[in-house]
């Protein structure tokens, strides 16, 4: 049963910001609704007011500018991400992760920005966005700010976002062609399942590794120490094995309904090893 709420279909960002600036009301943003509606059905979210942002032109933006990068507006769906030629070509890990997120029907509604704002520790798209050094575009009546995604998450389901702030989109810097990346996910069943561990890894044209993991910490995380290790050592076949061992010392996952901490550690090691192997051999070919 839903608690009482008012539904507003906003036409402009300013209209949304005015609602969000009202301190007397609990206002929630409705984009795909695939997380929010479930929480409302369970009465875990009881907003006074739902602001539907799907009618705002600026939120529908999904564009790429050479030399600048990609901008994904807040109402762009996950299936739009999976079908974007530029994302599949340039930001491979993001396209791959989007394909593993929930089911086809849900991906037709779920948005990339919603996946980030929901701030699940296991958010599939967060890892790839972290390795592409994405920025979060935030607006409020006080003005606009742009924040690196790495500074956005503060805990499970928690972000730096203030009650009066709206994420209008996420941007990713342009990449050199030859930039390689991938996303590996371990889940209980193939298709429509939350990840037990997700590994996003990128090898830039100038040979720099970037690594991010999901579902192994209170938030999706970049593993800077592992990146330094990978960048400091020659590309021998042992490098992948050592990276797999090292990641197990760097993360402290918990046990939950999907997997035990021990299993997560084991799988994180396997996936990191596999990712390093795939990226380095792909490069050699």
């Amino acid at each position: 049963m839903f608690s009482q709420f008012k539904y507003v279909k906003a036409q402009t960002i300013d209209e949304v910001l005015t609602y969000l600036g009202d301190r007397d009301r609990c206002v929630k943003i409705l984009a795909g609704g695939t997380d929010l509606m479930v929480l409302m059905q369970r009465n875990l979210e009881t907003p006074d007011c739902l602001i539907d942002i799907k009618g705002i032109e600026e939120m529908k933006r999904l564009d790429f500018v050479q030399g600048v990068g990609l901008f994904v507006g807040a109402s762009v769906t996950v299936n739009q991400v999976t079908e974007s030629k530029i994302i599949l070509e340039k930001y491979q890990a993001l396209g791959q992760a989007a394909k593993t997120l929930a089911s086809y029907q849900l991906r037709n509604r779920a948005t990339l920005v919603g996946n980030v704002c929901n701030a699940s520790p296991g958010a599939d798209l967060a890892g790839p966005l972290l390795i592409f050094e994405a920025n979060v575009h935030i607006a409020s009546l006080d003005g606009r700010r742009v924040l690196p995604l790495a500074q956005f998450f503060t805990g499970p389901k928690k972000t730096v976002l203030a009650a009066n702030e709206l994420v209008t989109g996420i941007s990713l810097p342009d990449l050199s062609s030859g930039d390689q990346s991938l996303y590996l996910k371990q889940a209980r069943v193939k298709g429509h399942d939350l990840g037990i561990v997700g590994v996003a890894m990128r090898l830039t044209l100038d040979q720099k590794f970037l690594v991010a993991l999901s579902a192994v910490a209170p938030t999706p995380i970049r593993l800077l120490e592992l990146e330094e290790f990978l960048n400091a050592h020659p590309r021998t076949p042992e490098l992948a094995t050592k990276a797999g061992e090292m990641v197990q010392k760097l993360i402290h996952p918990i046990s939950d309904v999907r997997a035990s901490a021990e299993y997560r550690l084991l799988i994180a090691g396997v996936l990191v090893k596999r990712a390093v192997t795939l990226l380095t051999t792909r490069e050699a070919n």
Binding site: K9, L30, M37, D52, Q105, N108, R109
Partner: peptide, 10 residues
């Protein structure tokens, strides 16, 4: 789409 997660007004 899943009709259970969409409001009729949408």
């Amino acid at each position: 789409v899943n009709a259970c997660l969409i409001l009729a007004v949408e």
